[in-house]
Design a protein around this nucleic acid. Structure first.
Lengths: 252, 252
DNA sequence: CGTGAATTTGACTGACATCAACTCAGGTGG
DNA sequence: CCACCTGAGTTGATGTCAGTCAAATTCACG
């Protein structure tokens, strides 16, 4: 059973391709679907730096760190967040296996956000200097790298829509639907998964308080939209959740 | 008087360099500061497509349009916005001369937002296929292109911080400070400028209503922070505005 | 078990939205 | 030249959604 991955993850790739190919790390997802040959694959392997384990709660990079590597998540989950001068944090994203961290650092050679592991995780370091050299020699890889950066721009635009336009209920529904589709794209159940982040982190990401998130969960539970037990969540009515997300349905 | 442009615009460039170099269009800002030689410049000239005038209110591209070109703004101002399925718009940015439009479209070969001119404007079309070919041959240009995409990611992260964390007053101050620094980077007065967008558009961008924007303007006026006359605005106390933006000062 | 942290729930508050009335600038035509 | 019109912007009164504060409950883990 070959399923298309949604464009927002890795355009054109199938799960089977990705699974088979994940020889060294998720960075391969960058290129494989585009038809790199074995020779190219080997060159990519060579530049990918050491794997690095990041314990739950540990920092992968911090705002202001000088930019050396991109990081491909092999395993686990991360959050990235910004801090303003008053010390307020804003979580800008939750990343999972197969996603790339650090692209915001290219512009000024230093990281503009911090990244922390939400659970014990593993990444591949990709020295950016070396990658850039390779990009100049491998048009296929270049094209795909651009797609990934562009995808990040698109993702952030969606969050802007969410934060700027949506009500609390709609935001939270959008959040669940987004996680669901990303797990589905990875071959996991789209309807039953663990929330790797705390209520507080969800609230921060969605521009809401922890109490609001808790109330929304209770509300969704009462309305039969989800079943929740601690951080385990089951979506009981995905179509309705999607309708709420789209704004075509206010609520159950 | 050579001033450094802030990293958020074009790292390392000076205004004089940019002015002198703007032979064909702002796309040159991409590469010139990085030290392209004359030969390289000529090649860049060749791939830059026709100039295109866009009348006030006219659409440069629309969500769903197939992706062919990036657009470098030569002259004027644009807004980009997303539309959700319920038809709600969210302005994702205001762009001015020297900025690049369309980078969100690379990921899926179609535009994810629409772009409309806020005044009579002019852009250069940059056929992306051709550009990509050139990127493969010109490492300097490649590096700079990546910086620009990364910068867009960074910019959007700042907006997420704004929308997710800031109060109305702080958002509006941040908006003014941002415009101010961008005009300054272009050699215009940082303290007196025209708002090219309506109150409604400002409100939409900041996740506020038109009435709130109006009230904030009045409040700032009363507190001696700005002088306003229609769309002409003068910042009377930039340091305080910056302090409000940073969250270190609640208000005057 | 016991302790502290995370989460839930409830009561109250406040910031911003909504609704509505009004003002003003700029164009149009008599 | 000016009366009129229109749309943008302003201001005020009121409403509401989500925040704040506080207490209860559950969970994680030694």
């Amino acid at each position: 059973m070959i399923r298309e991955l949604p464009a927002l993850l890795i355009p054109g790739a199938t799960i089977e391709v990705l699974k088979a190919s994940c020889a060294s790390c998720s960075m391969h997802q960058l290129c494989l679907p585009m038809g790199l040959d074995n020779n190219d694959m080997e060159r990519l392997d060579e530049i990918i730096g050491r794997r690095r384990k990041v314990a739950r709660g540990a920092t992968l990079f911090r705002i202001g760190d000088s930019f050396q590597n991109l990081y491909a998540i092999r395993l686990g989950h991360f959050k990235t967040y910004q801090v303003n001068r008053a010390g307020a944090e804003q979580i800008t994203g939750f990343q999972m296996a197969g996603e790339l961290l650090g692209m915001d650092a290219i512009s000024a050679d230093q990281h503009h956000c911090s990244a922390i592991a939400l659970e014990d995780s593993e990444v591949c370091e990709i020295p950016f200097g070396t990658l850039q050299q390779l990009l100049g020699e491998m048009p296929t890889l270049l094209r795909h790298f651009h797609r990934m950066m562009s995808q990040e721009i698109t993702r952030e635009q969606s969050v802007m829509l969410l934060l700027g336009n949506m009500q609390a209920t709609q935001r939270f529904a959008a959040f669940l639907v987004n996680l669901s589709s990303r797990y589905e794209a990875r071959g996991y159940s789209p309807n039953t998964f663990q929330l790797r982040m705390s209520r507080e982190e969800i609230g921060n990401y969605l521009g809401l308080t922890i109490e609001s998130i808790s109330r929304l969960l209770s509300k969704f539970k009462k309305e039969g939209l989800v079943r929740v037990s601690n951080r385990e969540i089951e979506l009981l009515n995905p179509p309705l959740l999607k309708a709420i997300t789209a704004g075509t349905e206010t609520c159950a």
